[in-house]
Design a binder for these strands. Structure first.
Length: 484
RNA sequence: GCUCCGAUGGUGUAGUCCGGCCAAGCAUAUCGGCCUUUCGAGCCGACGACCCGGGUCCGAAUCCCGGUCGGAGCACCA
């Protein structure tokens, strides 16, 4: 066989393993970063950023800097400073250093002065309307040609508080005739009098993201930057600062945008929803926050595998919850015990049954999870799912899993045998009469109510409720739907 | 409108840089079969894709040109 048809063997060996492409221009170790704004807890979109960066730092060695971009004081959730590192830890993303931008304001001022001195930046008091119109027409405003000396003086006056919000901004010169209008002279600092959670009113002239990012990417020694495609134009803008200072550019990568259908991610919407009671909190399972996925019992390994498989292409894609769930199932199934949950229960007596003492394995193959048993007595009553009962025809035989076979006789059931009869019949989960009420909250907002078998009472964590779904059991009364 | 980017089955991807081993791989979903310790898992099988049109070439998913469609940016947000 091997001698005659070697090509057959080669074909079968073609097993695909998803691996991220190598980075360009790696010299020894890499320095990378993930830079969320602290406007709330991390969501599934952030997880891609964290995991891709983390994967490369693991591959090449080096630093992964968590840089918290809090230079817009009016969009900060103070809890995020604590929550973001926790979210990353849960994901298994190891940052080696945490940098908080608002603690680096003096550095930004230093770099701003340098650019003013070079004549590569200017302060501008045009109103927004004028400014935009001029940019669109590639026309310079009078402030653009003010001398470095005057600009430096003016800059100090701005820091002293001589101007109100909206009255003045610091602008980076690029090319007024740049073919891409979004790259033309851009705003690098603006005044904000909002209270900053870390610094109160100490500062009032805050750098915009494009400025602080460029400065920090250089000062922190970034070798490679991975971020979403929505930053492509920002990269072009930031390059001007690198070039004015003769700084070495990092290698940039921009992965495509991911559409998350029917998942709520927008901070502003979530905040509003929490405030008006639509959502119970950041961990509301209808949301796409990592807290919500965690509450639903997802494994952090799933995020890693999913994003590695998605790769770094610039192509936009749609998040596939189907594939995500399937991956999660693979991770959790072996370690997940089984329990019987009966939604919308119908209670029936098994007439003519002998004394029943079922012993049920907690997992079909993982023996370490042990088993459970019940002493039900003769002709016990059990509950089965109402929808199943409705679909069974009169006289039809079916099996109560790990208990006995029965036959539907009108509105009751009759015992057939304890052992399977070898016939191909429906197999249903069931609950003894002492079962307790249990509620499952689903991510679409639906709620299923039913019975949980008595031995489920002590259990906490993710269980596979047989024939129903994987559910994260958080209390005796309540669980959260993971997936089918 | 301007600038940039992208396009492989229902979905997510591999392959595209350096054209042939791609009559296109994997996963997921769906359907069917086996299995009675699940309508789960597992195993087996089926279904199903290179956006369109030209060009170069012995040969194009891959290179070139044009088009179509989709996306991002054009904020005193990040």
């Amino acid at each position: 066989m091997e001698k005659n048809y070697p090509e057959f063997l080669n074909r079968e060996k073609k097993v695909q393993e998803h691996r991220l492409p190598d980075l360009r221009n790696v010299k020894g170790k890499v320095v990378m970063r993930m830079a969320p704004s602290p406007s709330g807890p991390l969501h599934i979109g952030h997880s891609r950023l964290g995991i891709l960066n983390d994967e490369y730092v693991r591959r090449y060695g080096g630093e992964l800097i968590l840089r918290i971009e809090d230079t817009n004081p009016s969009n900060i959730d103070p809890n995020a400073y604590e929550q973001i590192p926790k979210d990353l830890e849960w994901l298994g993303v190891n940052s080696t250093q945490v940098v908080i931008q608002s603690d680096r304001m003096e550095l930004y001022y230093r770099e701003a002065r340098r650019l003013l001195e070079q004549g590569n930046a200017y302060l501008c008091t045009c109103n927004t309307e004028e400014y935009k119109e001029k940019l669109a027409k590639s026309v310079a405003c009078p402030h653009r040609s003010v001398s470095p000396h005057e600009n430096l003086e003016l800059f100090e006056r701005v820091l002293m508080g001589e101007f109100a919000p909206g009255e003045i901004v610091l602008i980076i010169k690029t090319q007024l005739d740049h073919p891409n209008p979004s790259v033309r002279d851009w705003i690098a600092f603006r005044i904000s009098e909002a209270n900053h959670p870390r610094h109160g009113h100490k500062y009032r002239f805050y750098p915009m993201m494009n400025f602080s990012v460029a400065v920090d990417d250089h000062l922190l020694g970034l070798t490679h930057v991975i971020r979403g495609k929505d930053h492509i134009n920002n990269t072009e803008r930031q390059k001007f600062i690198f070039n004015y200072n003769n700084w070495t550019l990092p290698e940039y990568y921009h992965y495509g945008l991911v559409d998350f259908p029917q998942v709520v991610l927008k901070t502003s919407i979530i905040k509003k929803g929490i405030a008006d009671g639509t959502y119970t909190g950041w961990d509301d399972v209808r949301l796409g926050s990592l807290l919500a996925f965690r509450k639903r019992g997802f494994s952090p390994e799933t995020f890693r595998r999913y994003w590695i498989e998605s790769g770094m292409r610039e192509i936009d894609s749609e998040f596939s919850i189907e594939i995500f769930n399937a991956m999660n199932k693979e991770f959790i199934d072996q370690r997940t015990r089984r329990l019987f949950f009966v939604p919308d229960p119908v209670t029936l007596e098994i007439s003519g049954a002998p004394h029943l003492k079922p012993v049920i394995q907690n997992h079909p193959s993982n023996r370490e999870l042990g088993n459970r048993s019940y002493n039900l007595g003769k002709s016990p009553s059990v509950s089965i799912p109402g929808s199943d009962w409705a679909s069974i025809t009169d006289g039809e035989e079916f099996r109560l899993k790990d208990l006995c076979n029965v036959r539907k006789t009108g509105e009751a059931i009759a015992f057939v045998s304890t052992e399977p009869t070898g016939k191909r019949v429906k197999i249903l989960q069931w609950c003894p009469i002492e079962s307790h009420k249990f509620t499952v909250m689903k991510p679409d907002g639906d709620i299923d109510v039913g019975l949980m078998e008595p031995q489920g009472e002590k259990f906490r964590g993710v269980a596979q409720l047989e024939r129903y779904a994987y559910v994260n059991v958080l209390s005796d009364e309540e669980g959260y739907f993971t997936h089918k």
